[in-house]
Amino acid sequence: MTNDQSFMNKHHFLLRRLHSLTGIVPIGLFLIGHLTTNSSIIWGAINGRATHAMDPELVEGVGKATAGQVGTFQHEVTFINESVPFLILIEITLWLSIAFHSILGIYYARTGKANTKRYEYQGNWRYTLQRISGYVGILFIVYHVATLRWGWTWLIPGGTKWDYEYASSTLAMALKGSETGDWTFLGVLVSLLYLLGVTMLVFHFANGLWTAAITWGVTITAKAQRNWGYVCAALGAGLMAAGWGALFGFLFVDVQAAKDIEEEMLRKKSADIVEPEAVSMIPATEHTLVAIEA
């Protein structure tokens, strides 16, 4: 027996269950939040508050829906990047969890041998797809984070860089593979990769949530497993809609209009930072002066 095998055997139970757990918390939980945020590029259209502070003429020009979509998404992204405390710690936790889950996942997946050719049951297909989606999913995640978060622009067809202050427009550029937001052949491939990646990961999470309930012994009877299956399927359908919605939202957003709105928001933000200081400093100084005089 080799050393790593004996390590795996010694901590067999703990590792298996941590593998199951990390898939739900934090990874699955993050996925829900991430897709909800990103789909704001669609549901932002009905977010009336997003356009309140904007120049009405600009909103008129690009359309209230587009302004709401880009505005809401930008607001979310700015919030995450500027106001979430310990963002780096959250990121490290996520990375460690993903690394742990995928490395062990590959190790475990290799213990099985798919046999859907002979036993074409739906459950067997899901078993096989769970493993395939894990492989595809991890490749997609690495590409996704490397290009957009670590700035490996050489992996982006147009060589553009994603900028959180121009979240929608630079994302559209990265997806379509050009600075103008026009489609390129490689851009189509990248977009298809995103479609595949999102689909696989959402399936992986929904199906994994279903099997986790069996693994931990939460759903025992066939009926309970079926019931929980409906819940997982509904959650999966919802996340799939959010994921696809987000992708198509970014693919079909007007890049120039998005840029205009992002710039407007940046202007408003820098103004916001100056104004409160200006307002609060003056009375304070006056107050001090009054105190000294007295």
Partner: peptide, 13 residues
């Protein structure tokens, strides 16, 4: 332990 219940992949074949 190893080879036990956690080796099941829930394919339900």
């Amino acid at each position: 332990g190893p080879g036990g219940i956690n080796n099941c992949g829930n394919s339900q074949n």
